[in-house]
């Protein structure tokens, strides 16, 4: 097993490395389910969150993961205003280097921002979403959730539907899932699924209903509503009719298909409430598993052995 300083994406990881993280997340989840959720593992250490895009969910999940491991989670307040004042990511990296930080968790609107920080820092870096590039912990928690319910993903059919073009979640999931042998189909309207997305090496389709039969998992991507104003699709109504998930449509799979969504959901647009809140909906599982997976990643990057839980 290679030793990593950072987790920047799943594209560069081997199947064994992905499995190793997922294995490590299992005992972490057990800890989470205990009444006293606290490990002394990383006591005295601090992880820093640096979120250039607002995301309460992801940030809270990382903070919780750090705290359960006994580390302090320090939020480095960045707002668009400090960016506008001209402080570059390079300046920030220099400051963080001077602070002797151990681990930085960054979310940034530019693809490559996490890798950029990692190159300029001795500290470890976790990519919590960089532009449209990768969001590795999201994909890891999705895959963890799928494996919990389905076991080995080899040969399982996973449909990812929505705004694939702009989605770092979709990219990371494609890399992770295909490395574990799953069959992935990307579905969306042509404007959100241009032909060059074939670079990801999986099937592309405009027709959700045709792809549904046999699907073990359907993952709806969050639709940024401003894409409609940008002209990428004509209306939410038409989008929802073609690509929105609901219980009736999902019968076509012929299975108890798992429904995943990275959240927050636009209910009634990409996913109907009856489906999201029903037994097939994994959204709450995903939240719990997110903390477990992030615990595993923080733990492994901070030099932990596989013998996690004392």
């Amino acid at each position: 097993m290679r030793m990593f300083k950072d987790l920047l994406g799943l594209e560069g990881l081997s199947p064994d490395e992905i499995r190793h993280i997922l294995q490590t997340a299992k005992p972490m989840k057990d800890v989470l389910l205990r009444p006293v959720k606290k490990l002394p593992t990383l006591r005295g250490k601090a992880v820093y969150t640096l979120f250039y895009e607002a995301s309460t969910r992801t940030k809270t999940s990382f903070e919780m993961a750090a705290k359960v491991l006994g580390a302090d989670a320090v939020n480095i307040g960045v707002s668009q205003s400090s960016v506008n004042k001209g402080e570059s990511l390079l300046d920030t990296a220099k400051t963080l280097q001077a602070m002797q930080t151990d681990l930085i968790i960054i979310r940034h609107s530019s693809s490559g921002a996490a890798g950029f920080l990692a190159r300029h820092l001795e500290a470890g870096v976790i990519n919590a979403g960089d532009g449209q590039h990768e969001h590795p912990t999201q994909a890891l928690l999705d895959i963890f959730t799928m494996r919990e319910k389905l076991g080995d993903l080899n040969g399982k059919k996973v449909i990812i539907v929505g705004d694939v073009l702009h989605s770092r979640v979709a990219r990371s999931n494609v890399w992770g899932l295909t490395k574990l042998g799953a069959e992935v189909v990307l579905v969306g309207p042509p404007t959100l699924l241009p032909p060059e997305m074939s670079a990801l090496g999986v099937k592309l389709s405009y027709d959700l209903d045709r792809e549904l039969p046999g699907a073990d998992v359907v993952m709806a991507l969050r639709l940024q509503l401003e894409r409609q104003q940008a002209g990428l699709f004509p209306s939410l109504r038409e989008y929802s009719r073609s690509y929105g998930l609901d219980r009736a449509r999902l019968r076509a799979t012929g299975k108890d298909t798992l429904i995943l969504h990275p959240g927050p959901m636009n209910r009634g647009v990409e996913i109907a409430s009856d489906l999201a809140d029903g037994p097939q909906g994994m959204v709450e599982e995903q939240v719990t598993n997110g903390v477990a997976v992030r615990m595993a990643v923080i733990y492994l990057l901070m030099g932990g052995t596989t013998n996690v839980v004392a």
Partner: peptide, 13 residues
């Protein structure tokens, strides 16, 4: 350039 490399890297083409 808008093409496969941009699609993979998540950069606008």
């Amino acid at each position: 350039h808008r093409g496969k490399a941009a699609a993979r890297l998540g950069l606008k083409g």
